[in-house]
Every structure is written in C-alpha cells, then in structure tokens.
C-alpha cells in the first residue's frame, strides 16, 4: 500500500538565533501516507514545518532532507513549492488589495512554469477554483476579496485547504490547520484534506489535538518532544495521548511502549 519514501529527514538540527530547536530529527514519509505529528507546545513542530518550507528565520546546522531522493534544503522556498511542497500556515497572512483568486492563479501558474507547464487560462482556472471552493464550502464571494483580509480564523483555514486543493502538492504540511475551528469548520477542513489524499501524495498534519484525527485518520502518528520524534505509532497512539497528555514527553528519553519505525 505504502509507496516510495517521498520525504526523508535524517539527523535534522535547526536553530533560531542561538536557540537550537530541532535536535536530530528523523522522519520518513511515504507516498500515499498521512502522518500526524503531535506534541506539546514548544516541542518544535512548527519549526519543522517552517524548515521544510524554507523559512529564512531558521538555520539548519546539520542533517539532510530529501524529497523524492533530491536535496530540499539547498532550494529557495519557491523552488520547493514547485517541487510540490505545500505549507498550510497556522497564521495565514493578509495581503490587502490582492484578490484571493488572483493570488491563487498567480501561484498556480508560477508552479506550472517551474515545472515547465503552460499557464492555465482564466476560464479553466475559474472552473477549477469553483469546484474546489465547493469542496471546502467557501462562498464564491471570497474569490474577489483581498487575500485573507477580514477573514475569520475559520475562513482563513478553509482558504488554506482550498489553496492546497487547487495547487495539488505532492507533500502537504498542515501546521495546526485545526486550531481555532469549531466542529463544523473542522468537518469541512477535514473533508478538504481527505479529498487531497491520494496514492501519489503525502500529508503531514501538525497538530496539538487528537480531534482532527477523528476526521482525517492518519496512517502514522508521531510524538515530538525536545526537538525530536520520541515515539511513533498507529492512530491509537493519538487516542492514548488524549488520555495521558504530554506530561511524560517532557522527560527526555522516556520510554513508552510503541512501534518505532526506522
């Protein structure tokens, strides 16, 4: 069922300024899989997401990251995007005066250009956008509004998932896509994520809570603590965490029974 190793992280260390946040992280994500990365605040989950997408603020000091066997760390963010990396932001930015759909079409055509494909014309793009907006129950009026400007928290998250559905990334990293969502919004976002799920793609859900995982059932669950993955298991691990909390993860080297993948 599982495909080849799409994303491979080995011994990744990264810091912000003088503070080391990722301290030798290993992770393999195969095509077709959905992984959940859970863990307490400050464990390095969002840093991992930012490092994978190429955010400047993080400095990688050791380790390797490959996508389809090719180095990712040496590439600027836009090239990573063209290779199929998508980051769903925890806090999507607002850009006044730039239309939501205009932005997305520019992005899609930039990605296509990066892959040597022809740009999608306005009519084909609109048809595609309409279909995907329906998927996340985003009102068509959002298309012409300024990017994320004045959107509610839930609308911003739906917009992220909408963008993901249009851009069809190979590796989608969704950073706390569930935070601040009510149960209806959570259901809609989950449906969007499920729609992107497919044998050629992989999804990494960075989340604090297990409730998202009731809707998007992960193949693998990891627990991060102190800048490393300290435990890996199936989806039952998420439930267990819901019961026990993360207190244990604070202790370095704590051993909890569970399957550890290479």
């Amino acid at each position: 069922m599982s495909g080849h190793a799409l994303l491979e992280i080995r011994g990744l260390r990264a810091r912000v300024g003088e503070t080391e946040i990722l301290k030798g992280l290993d992770l393999t994500v195969r095509a077709g899989e959905v992984h959940a990365i859970m863990g307490p605040n400050g464990s390095g989950k969002s840093t991992l997401a930012g490092v994978l997408a190429g955010r400047d603020a993080y400095q990688v000091t050791a380790g390797t990251v490959t996508l389809d066997g090719q180095d990712l760390l040496g590439l600027p963010p836009e090239t990573r995007a063209a290779r199929g990396v998508f980051l769903g932001f925890q806090y999507p930015v607002e850009i006044p005066g730039v239309g939501n759909l205009y932005f997305l079409r520019t992005a899609l055509n930039a990605l296509r250009a990066g892959r040597g494909e022809e740009p999608l014309d306005a009519i084909d793009f609109l048809a595609l956008a309409k279909e995907k907006m329906k998927l996340v129950e985003l009102d068509p009026a959002f298309g012409s509004r300024s990017l994320n400007e004045g959107f509610s928290g839930g609308e911003k998250k739906r917009n992220e998932v909408f963008q993901m559905a249009v851009l069809e990334p190979r590796l989608a990293i969704l950073d706390e896509i569930d935070s601040g969502l009510d149960i209806d919004a959570l259901r809609v976002v989950s449906r969007g994520v499920e729609a992107v799920r497919g044998p050629a793609r992989a999804i990494v859900l960075v989340t604090h809570y297990q409730r998202l995982l009731d809707h998007v059932v992960p193949d693998v669950v990891h627990v991060m603590a102190g800048g490393r993955i300290v435990r890996t298991g199936g989806r039952e691990l998420a439930r267990e965490l819901e019961q026990t909390g993360y207190a244990w993860a604070g202790e370095r080297g704590a051993t909890i029974p569970g399957e550890v993948r290479p």
Partner: peptide, 27 residues
C-alpha cells in the same frame, strides 16, 4: 517577511511577490 514568505511558499518569486503586494497596495 511573513507576506513575502507566504507568497514564495506558494511558488511566487520574491520579485513577483513584492510587485504583487505593491500593486495590491495601489489598487
């Protein structure tokens, strides 16, 4: 920086992102 990174993460080069943000500002 956040606006620029957001655009670049979506595949838009830095130059194009600045131009887009400025055009939005002037719209």
């Amino acid at each position: 920086e956040d606006q620029l990174f957001y655009c670049r993460q979506r595949g838009i080069s830095e130059e194009d992102a600045v131009s887009m943000i400025v055009n939005g500002f002037a719209r």
